[in-house]
Design a protein around this nucleic acid. Structure first.
Length: 295
DNA sequence: GGTAGACCTGGACGC
DNA sequence: GCGTCCAGGTCTACC
């Protein structure tokens, strides 16, 4: 089965794929140098299928090899549109970038859309797994979580969907620490999964929330394991760019670019990008840092 | 409100 | 190969 989805122009699947590191985290899978990717998804009827997503003119083509996925077709269409932000409009931001040489590449490459997971639950778990560790650690922990708790893709050995809240919630801290090797994050992941599974926390409703960014930030930081950096990163994925995900890399880059390498505090990063208003997170994210020593 | 220490792992480094 | 040190955000206790 296959279908096509239209994107609000300009659109570049490659720019979405390369918008941040998510494409390297299971159950995303991509071929190096290619502008297409696979994603194993479990629909609400529990069927596990692999989506093969490639770019067409003004949109994407989604191919599903497994038979019988027709039932969940509408659900999958909604998921893909969310993951690739197909309906988002960045024209207002592009207008501003035309006056900034460090962002001159943004409109030309149709950048701005950030790759998302189908659920905010998955994005929140993955964001927690990026904190206080190396990128290789994030990949390892995500892989372990997917392999141990995800649902297998029929007929394809070694491929799994990202686990739903229930699949993690029925585990325990010892397993998440000892086998999944999430370390001190294990109780955070377990608590989050149990709250979402029980209905005590409705994360998915935040995807369509009209709450002001400040209130969304407050709700996200009330999740144990989600601090300022993680909340700002999640807000960016939700399309709110007025908080900056300031980590050690950000301090280093902004220091080098704007403060002659002098040690700086997070407030200095905020100050530099304040002029971008509600777009400051995106301006920071897409800034050309090559002069600051980015490799 | 601000600060210090603990949390856990992998990588770098020295022996 | 082994031991030590450090980086990476967040939480909690304390002031």
């Amino acid at each position: 089965m296959q279908f096509e989805l239209t994107a609000n122009p300009p659109f570049s699947l490659g720019s979405v794929i390369n918008s941040h590191g998510w494409i390297r985290l299971a159950p995303f899978d991509t071929i190096e140098g290619s502008d297409q990717f696979n994603y194993v998804i479990q629909s609400s009827n529990q069927q596990v299928v692999q989506l093969q997503i490639s770019e067409i003119q003004n949109g994407v083509r989604v191919y599903i090899q497994e038979q019988g996925a027709v039932q969940a077709q509408d659900e999958i269409k909604t998921a893909v549109a969310w993951m690739l932000q197909l309906n988002e409009d960045y024209s207002q931001f592009y207008e501003l970038t035309r006056r900034e040489p460090k962002l001159s590449h943004v409109e030309e490459k149709a950048q701005g859309r950030l790759l998302r997971s189908p659920t905010l639950f998955e994005d929140t778990i993955k964001t927690i797994l990026t904190t206080n560790t190396s990128w290789s650690g994030t990949i390892r922990m995500t892989d372990s979580l997917v392999i141990q708790f995800g649902s297998p893709l029929p007929g394809r050995e070694g491929q799994y969907s990202f686990p739903g809240p229930h699949q993690v919630a029925i585990s325990n801290e010892q397993t998440l620490r000892g086998e999944t090797r999430l370390g001190y994050r294990a109780p955070f992941i377990l608590e989050l999964s149990r709250k979402v599974d029980s209905g005590a926390l409705d994360l998915e409703k935040l995807k369509s929330s009209n709450l002001p960014t400040k209130e969304l930030h407050k709700q996200l930081t009330s999740i144990r394991g989600v601090g300022n950096y993680a909340a700002a990163h999640l807000l960016m994925l939700l399309g709110h760019f007025d908080y900056l995900p300031i980590d050690s890399w950000a301090l280093k880059m902004v220091s080098s670019e704007f403060f002659n390498g002098e040690p700086i505090q997070p407030e200095a990063v905020e100050q530099v990008f304040d002029r971008w208003g509600k777009w400051k997170g995106l301006a920071y994210w897409l800034w050309n840092w090559s002069a600051a020593g980015e490799t």
